[in-house]
Amino acid sequence: MRVPILKQGPYLIASVQSALTDADLLQMRDDLARLVGQHRSHGVVVDVTALDVLDSFAARTLRTMAYAIRLRGAQMVIVGIQPEVAFAMVQLGLSLPGVDTALDLEEGLALLNRKTSEDHASEG
């Protein structure tokens, strides 16, 4: 199932659903890269609240996605990693170095506001 992406002011919000396949994840990466350019978005929130597994492939794809979006001049923040998922990730040796995280959508948007206010005049 394709991940729905919403435009919210200067930001894009991608809400990942539970049964995320590798292909869906790669599709989301490509969609976000395209839409950031198209809307000249300042930031992207990837909401993974519904995910019950983040394995090595997902961790790697999220990392490369964050780097790619930064290269396009925008910020990415991942929100909603569940406690069990986070603990499973560290036990497996997976982490997201250099990628911003926040507790939920609200905190994620607040973080983007703080990060982008340095580069952009307030457009919210």
Binding site: Q82, E84, L92
Partner: peptide, 13 residues
């Protein structure tokens, strides 16, 4: 629930 996440992730791998 913690173990469920571990098991699901290992199966995924």
């Amino acid at each position: 629930t913690g173990d469920l996440a571990l098991i699901a992730t290992a199966i995924s791998e």
